[in-house]
Simulated assay, not measured.
Amino acid sequence: MVLQLLHRAGARSTHLHLASFGAIGLCLTLWVRAKTVDQEQRGNAERRALFVGLWPPMLWLIGEALREPK
């Protein structure tokens, strides 16, 4: 049902695969940026990077599900 809604909304597997790569880049950027903040805020910044790091596999798998014929 969700996949049908995504397909009708115009989302294609390529879009989600590219979003997955973008999330990897965002995660790395946030992680590097966490090293530049002071010690008091570093824990929160690292948790944010780890949270974003969970997105790429999910986006990739949704993209794979959209690619499969129904």
Rank of each mutant, 00 (worst) to 15 (best):
M1V: 04
M1R: 15
M1K: 15
L3E: 11
Q4H: 12
Q4T: 12
Q4M: 11
G10K: 00
A11P: 03
T14Y: 09
L16E: 07
L16H: 07
H17W: 14
L18C: 14
L18A: 12
A19W: 06
A19P: 10
S20G: 12
S20W: 10
F21A: 14
F21T: 14
G22H: 04
A23Y: 05
A23E: 13
A23D: 08
I24V: 15
G25R: 01
L26C: 07
L26R: 04
C27W: 04
L28V: 04
L30Q: 13
R33Y: 13
R33Q: 12
A34C: 08
K35R: 13
K35Y: 10
K35P: 01
T36D: 11
T36K: 13
T36Y: 08
E40L: 13
E40Q: 14
Q41R: 14
G43W: 10
G43I: 07
N44R: 15
R47W: 13
R47K: 08
R47Y: 09
R48D: 04
A49F: 00
A49Y: 01
L50F: 13
L50H: 13
V52G: 08
G53P: 06
L54M: 12
W55E: 07
P56G: 05
P57W: 05
M58V: 15
W60T: 09
L61T: 10
L61H: 09
L61S: 00
I62Q: 03
I62D: 02
G63R: 05
E64P: 01
E64V: 11
E64F: 05
E64S: 08
L66S: 05
R67A: 10
R67E: 02
R67T: 02
P69G: 04
P69T: 00
P69D: 03
